Simulated scan of single mutants.
Amino acid sequence: MNIKVGDIVGRRSYDCDMLFRVVTVKEDNTVELYGEDYRLVADAPIDDIVVVNISEKKAKRSQTKEKEDTSYRLFRQDYHLLKQRSEYNATSGYGTKKLFFEIPGRVLHIDGDPIYLNKCLALYKKLGIPVQGIHMQESEMPFKVKELLEKVKPDILVITGHDAYSKNKGNKSELKAYRHSQFFADSVRKARQYQPQLDQLVIFAGACQSHFESLIRAGANFASSPGRINIHALDPVYIVAKISYTSFMERINVWDVLRNTLTGDEGLGGIETRGILRTGMPYKENNDE
């Protein structure tokens, strides 16, 4: 079978339920796969995979796109409510007509997948969230995260990429049974050495099937995956957006953060966290006078 890096494939043993991208073709006739829409990494025998044709790919992408559009629409509804609340507070209950400006939280997003990172950056831009995106392998993250934090000085840190649980390596409570959870947990600990306060640096960590409990214990505010299920590539962005656009005067109910994600509380969880947004006035439009 002529399988090459970059091919979009499915696994016969799973009825081609998910689209994967081939990232490595190994000499032992196995391939390493990255989920095309979900943050899952998998190995498969080369004779178990099949290249997905264009019509099948379009059909699966259409289903995923519909979910993405729904999440975006729900977030926009939340955003407008948050905007109205900010306007009410900034104008003393609409008692004045002063114009105000907003400073949303700044994001440092470190991702193990360059394609996912670009998708996330496009959504951050669409949502108006200031972000610095960095691609690196998950194994590098613990050694570089502190330096990046010192350089970027973000309000919110995202540490993500790919992960997977393997029952052949241990039970679900053992960190060694996960592909990259250890790297994510070590990265969170390094970040907490830089900023121990949970509300001064809000951290999201994890990917598909990640060891949720270890990431929270390490110091993450939000993490995946409580139910050890797959999470969508864009789920971290929706969590970040809710935090970034909630006032620093308010605490965020965890369910309010999770309900607009594509995965929900089986794939994502967290702890009560303060928002980041700050408002100010007066707002002055640019002019040359």
Results as ranks from 00 to 15, higher is better:
Met141Ser: 05
Lys98Ala: 11
Thr96Leu: 04
Pro104Ile: 03
Gly93Ala: 07
Pro142His: 08
Gly112Cys: 04
Phe101Cys: 14
Glu140Phe: 10
Phe100Leu: 07
Leu127Thr: 04
Asp111Ile: 05
Leu148Gly: 02
Tyr116Val: 10
Cys120Gly: 07
Cys120Arg: 11
Gly105Cys: 08
Phe101Val: 09
Ile134Cys: 08
Asp111Tyr: 02
Phe143Pro: 02
Gly133Ser: 01
Lys125Thr: 14
Ile129Arg: 01
Glu102Arg: 09
Pro130Asp: 06
Gly95Asn: 13
Gly128Lys: 06
His135Leu: 04
Gly128Leu: 05
Ile134Gln: 03
Glu138Gly: 08
Phe101Tyr: 15
Pro114Lys: 09
Val145Thr: 13
Met136Phe: 06
Glu102Asp: 10
Val145Glu: 00
Pro142Ser: 07
His109Phe: 06
Gly128Pro: 05
Lys125Tyr: 10
Ile103Asp: 05
Lys125Met: 11
Tyr124Leu: 02
Gln137His: 14
Val131Cys: 10
His109Lys: 07
Leu123Asp: 02
Gly95Pro: 01
Met136Tyr: 03
Pro104Thr: 07
Lys126Leu: 07
Gly93Cys: 06
Glu147Pro: 01
Leu121Ala: 08
Lys125His: 15
Pro104Tyr: 01
Lys146Asn: 12
Leu149Val: 06
Thr96Ile: 11
Arg106His: 12
Phe101Ser: 13
Glu140Asn: 12
Glu138Met: 09
His135Pro: 04
Ile115Pro: 00
Gln132Pro: 04
Pro114Trp: 05
Cys120Leu: 08
Tyr124Ile: 00
Met141Phe: 09
Gly95Ala: 11
Glu150Asn: 11
Ile110Pro: 01
Lys97His: 14
Lys97Ile: 12
Met141Gly: 02
Pro142Arg: 02
Leu99Asp: 13
Ala122Gln: 15
Gln137Leu: 15
Leu148Glu: 10
Gly95Leu: 10
Glu140Ser: 12
Gln132Phe: 11
